[in-house]
């Protein structure tokens, strides 16, 4: 279990909303702070990874909790 500074719930949202909301949430963080993002969209697994590769905000950890996907992202 990773510690985090903010949590964003994207449950029920479909592409591209989880990515757009993640970007907005990460923008509000300070460098080094961590966002926990939760989604139900299976597409967000690949999308969050792609987004993090491109923006260099690091995807520290991802996994499944029940029927939800959970991502921990550290702002660059």
């Amino acid at each position: 279990m990773t510690d985090y500074n903010e949590e964003l719930d994207c449950s029920g949202l479909n592409c591209p909303l989880p990515i757009l909301k993640t970007k907005k949430a990460v923008d509000k963080l300070e460098s080094g702070q961590i966002l926990k993002m939760v989604s139900t969209d299976p597409g967000s697994c690949n999308d969050v990874e792609a987004w993090s590769n491109r923006t260099k905000n690091q995807l520290l950890e991802s996994g499944k909790e029940g029927d939800k996907y959970v991502f921990y992202i550290e702002k660059k």
């Binding site: 591209p16 757009l20 987004w51 923006t55």
Partner: peptide
């Protein structure tokens, strides 16, 4: 609109 918003979100 999907591509544009996502691309912008990807800097």
């Amino acid at each position: 609109f999907i591509l544009a918003s996502t691309a912008a979100a990807m800097d």
